Amino acid sequence: MKSFANLLISLIVAIWVIAIAILSVQNFEPVSLKFLTFQSIKIPVGIVLAFSAGVGLVGVAILQPLWNLADSGNSRLEEDAEFFVDDEDF
């Protein structure tokens, strides 16, 4: 099952890379990013998309262990709540 999950994830990432490649070839027009008062140099849309996708993948890879730590604390509380349930019939 784990190998199927890895295959599925690889397939999804490959589809996104292909989509970014197609968009970058079709939209070669240089763009400039603006944020508040900051402005970047003019770069092609494909590079902006690839950079954004890469930052997103790295960000999720870094944050995923933190989410797992937060979930493990909640599951312990649920186990304790099930342990103290009163099973008397009324």
Rank of each mutant, 00 (worst) to 15 (best):
L23N: 15
D89F: 12
V48E: 04
V45K: 03
I18Q: 10
A19Q: 13
Q26R: 15
K34F: 03
I62S: 13
S52W: 05
S32T: 10
I9R: 06
D87A: 12
L49N: 08
Q64G: 03
A53Q: 11
E82S: 04
I62L: 15
V17S: 13
D80G: 01
L7Q: 03
F90E: 14
M1Y: 04
R76S: 07
A50G: 11
D87M: 07
D80V: 01
I20H: 10
Q39R: 11
N27V: 08
S3V: 04
A81G: 00
Q39H: 04
A81T: 03
Q64E: 12
I15V: 14
L11H: 03
E82L: 13
N6W: 03
N68K: 08
V45A: 02
G54Y: 08
Q26P: 05
S52G: 13
F35E: 02
L77F: 02
F35P: 00
A5I: 03
A53E: 08
D80H: 01
E88K: 11
W67Y: 11
V85L: 05
F35Y: 07
F90S: 14
A5Q: 01
S40K: 02
A14H: 08
S24Y: 04
I12A: 13
G54A: 12
E78F: 04
L69M: 11
Q26M: 14
V58A: 15
N68E: 08
V55T: 13
V25P: 05
N27M: 09
I18V: 15
I18N: 11
S10R: 06
A19T: 13
E29T: 09
L23W: 10
L69I: 06
G56W: 13
E82A: 06
L36S: 12
V25R: 14
I18H: 11
V45I: 11
A5W: 00
A14Q: 08
Q26D: 14
S10Q: 01
S75C: 01
Q64T: 12
I62C: 12
V85W: 02
I43K: 02
E78K: 04
I41W: 04
A61C: 08
S32Q: 13
D89K: 11
F28M: 05
L8D: 02
S24T: 13
G56M: 15
G46A: 12
A61S: 14
G56C: 15
I15H: 11
S10D: 09
V48D: 02
Q39K: 09
L77S: 05
S10Y: 03
E82H: 08
L7G: 01
I20L: 14
N6R: 06
V25N: 13
V25Y: 14
L36V: 10
V55C: 14
S75R: 04
V48G: 02
S52C: 09
L49H: 08
A70V: 07
F83N: 05
G59R: 07
I22L: 15
A14M: 13
I41G: 07
L11A: 11
A61F: 13
W16I: 15
L77A: 06
V55F: 15
F51I: 14
S40P: 01
F90G: 12
